[in-house]
Amino acid sequence: MIALLARDLSLAFRAGGGFGLGLAFFLLVVVLVPLGVGPDSAILAAIAPGVLWVGALLASLLSLDRIFALDHEDGSLDLLATAPLPLEGVVAIKALAHWLVTGLALTLAAPLLAVLLNLPAPGYPWLLLSLAVGTPALSVIGAFGASLTIGLRRGGLLLSLLVLPLYVPTLVFGAEVVRRGATGLAPATPLALLAAITAGSLALLPFAAAAAIRVNLR
């Protein structure tokens, strides 16, 4: 398990591994929005929570199709499925690796980018917290979506279509935490709901994804 995590991480940080791509995309979104919306700092402050969350969500979407597709292409998924690791565990580890490479990096970068969007000061801790709690759900939901599209040659767009509606609750609660935090309201309720979604997804989706992988390898 740990070996798998180490392998996925070292692959991600190597050339062509996709690390940094998500961060660059996140930066692009945050730079482009003010250019499109206009420089009014009050407006930017109001939309900052949503823009940051949408940006993080789209950035994590970017590398989802690599989670299983590469292993499927070179045959290692077959070998992993016959190895003494439960496939559910493989899914969980791969989602964890995806999160460490994208979700965690996005979470840490978000406060810096929030400066560009004039996020009100009380919002910062909630931004960090909500992304830290919510992005694992994005990774594991994404791994589930990726498991459905393993065998498809051009699965990228389909994957986005499948995953985006599943991202809705996470996005809604995540952005709500930041919005409430930034405007001084109590963000405890949406934060609890966000944590519940993450916990539920982490507990159940690896099983669904493993079932989908078995179907795909058949």
Binding site: E176, P190, I197
Partner: peptide, 8 residues
């Protein structure tokens, strides 16, 4: 979940 999220 989305239904409840959106209601919220």
């Amino acid at each position: 979940m989305s239904r409840y999220a959106v209601k919220f």
